[in-house]
Design a binder for these strands. Structure first.
Lengths: 136, 136
DNA sequence: TATTGTTATACTCTATAACTATA
DNA sequence: TATAGTTATAGAGTATAACAATA
């Protein structure tokens, strides 16, 4: 019959559990998951629309809407780039920074719950493996 | 300034990378990520709508639409439960099973790429940690 | 009364295509 | 010509609220 790939299954399940948890955190503060991602990426940074779209693996037009809505809520601002008059840079407002901070705390707590059964040593090992997987 | 949580960051990034990869796999076969999840869960199973919704962490109404579209593509079928006349069970059609099988191969390959830098021993260790995290 | 599922409605997310402005 | 971004449009996903049928 079927031949499941255990690593695929485990990774997919953890990924879905993580996004579900982050979606809940976002909802708690009146955001969606993509909005939470934008805030997370923009913490302490000023990013060009095209770079942000590439990082999120979204089309430019999708990002326009995302940023429109975030801007409408007063969380981010747009500013024309001085170096390239075609480009627009996005960054967090004070309110956006504050919300991003609140989200970070809640998200860390949610992830902590998710990893409940793991000891500190196991968490360290997991971090090492994840970091290496991300290093390619 | 800020105090990032390394494990939160790494887990979130891996989760997003995984879902991005699975979204691409889904797109390759004309599906969306939620549809891919439905197919993956339904492999070799017959599940009640309410159970499927709970598993996916979706409202019943959201699942109705998801299953409507999958049924419209001939991938799943609905059947009234014999045990409880209120309940409806969903299951894959032959075409749905075949597509789920094709997805499994592509997804395994995509995850393999994602974990590129990890040795076999590290993959085994990662699987162990993920499985334990999921065991709560 | 409680549970199962659907429908109606509204909003968010996303992509494609066509457009403007700048390089 | 190529790149950066927006707008228009359409489809999918999601939640809330109201509903019908069954337990």
């Amino acid at each position: 019959m079927t031949k499941p790939d255990p690593l695929l299954d485990a990774l997919a399940q953890v990924a879905f559990k993580t996004t579900t948890a982050l979606t809940e955190v976002a909802g708690d503060v009146g955001l969606t998951l993509p909005q939470l991602r934008v805030l997370g990426i923009l913490r302490g940074r000023r990013v060009r629309m095209s770079d942000l779209a590439a990082y999120l693996a979204l089309e430019k037009s999708s990002l326009s809407g995302l940023v429109d809505r975030a801007e409408g809520r007063g969380l981010v601002k747009r500013e024309r780039s001085e170096a390239d008059a075609r480009a627009i840079e996005v960054f967090l407002t004070d309110r956006g920074e504050a919300l991003a901070r609140a989200i970070e705390h809640r998200a860390a707590s949610a992830v902590d719950d998710l990893l409940g059964p793991l000891s500190q040593a196991e968490r360290d090992a997991l971090l090492g493996l994840l970091a290496k997987a991300l290093s390619d």
